[in-house]
């Protein structure tokens, strides 16, 4: 059966272009193409102009806080505030459905392209781009704030270590500085082949709970899990400690 035609009437088909009377006119062809293009460009520019004001918000906000610090009674403050609010309050339908495109094109694509070229130049000027690995390490440290700490963990534990991570309480999970230090699936990416589990969630990894070799201390928490006492004056805010035996020297990290 396979090759019978679809019986129903389809959408209007595009007829192949016929030769214009009097032959093909390159000028006319160019003009018509440019006319269509011009319409598209005008529409694009219209939306760009509507949304370009959002680019100013960040600068205006910075100006507002700077001025507020310098002179909280400055009459310019109210004018700046009104300007920011006017932009923020533009919630018209057209703005709502088009500002995402403005962000995608101007900030996400073109904006980041500029930033990346600048970073490349900085890496080159500082000699960071000598090896691919060095560039990777630098970028990782820029993206993941905890990367240096996790590298420190790797440098100070054997490959078969099982590490107890801090509990994901509000102090850690609400502070972006600590990324996802309390999430064993996330930390595992950085410390593999070492293994890890989180304080308070030992029951999720019973095999590992029996094999813990190290404790990662963060914000001074985790010392109570060590099978020995660390004098208060020797306690550091962040560090990695063997669980059973104290290390030869308790060195502050970083």
């Amino acid at each position: 059966m396979a090759k019978h035609d679809n019986k129903h009437k389809a959408a209007p088909k595009q007829a192949p272009p016929k030769k214009a009377p009097g032959g093909f006119s390159a000028g006319g062809y160019l003009f018509r193409n440019l006319a269509i293009l011009a319409v598209i460009v005008v529409i694009a520019l219209f939306f760009k102009s509507r949304n370009s004001k959002f680019d100013k918000v960040q600068g205006l906000t910075q100006d507002f806080y700077r001025l507020q610090r310098q002179n909280p009674n400055s009459p310019e403050l109210q004018a700046l505030y009104n300007q920011i609010m006017e932009i923020q309050n533009d919630t018209s339908f057209l703005t709502r459905v088009t500002r995402g495109y403005h962000w995608a094109i101007n900030d996400l694509a073109l904006g980041s392209l500029e930033g990346i070229h600048e970073l490349d130049s900085t890496f080159h000027a500082n000699g960071i781009d000598s090896t691919e690995q060095a560039v990777y390490e630098q970028k990782m440290a820029m993206k993941i704030g905890l990367y240096p700490l996790l590298k420190y963990v790797n440098a100070n534990t054997p490959k078969d270590a099982v590490i107890l991570l801090p509990e994901g309480d509000a102090k850690l999970s609400d502070n972006g500085k600590w990324n996802f230090i309390y999430d064993p699936e996330w930390v595992e990416y950085f410390i593999y082949p070492r293994l890890c589990l989180t304080i308070g969630r030992e029951d999720e990894h019973p095999d590992l709970a029996k094999r813990v070799t190290h404790v990662l201390v963060v914000e001074g928490k985790g010392y109570d899990k060590l099978h020995y006492d660390v004098p208060v004056e020797q306690r550091v805010s962040e560090g990695i400690f063997p669980i059973n035996e104290p290390p030869a020297a308790l060195k502050p990290q970083q």
Partner: peptide, 23 residues
């Protein structure tokens, strides 16, 4: 080109990429 440069420049950093797919 612009979005690809961004993609290829930065290592994976999204939570699910690190906690799962890239790992």
């Amino acid at each position: 080109y612009a979005i690809s440069v961004k993609n290829l420049f930065w290592p994976p950093s999204a939570h699910d990429a690190i906690g799962s797919f890239d790992k």
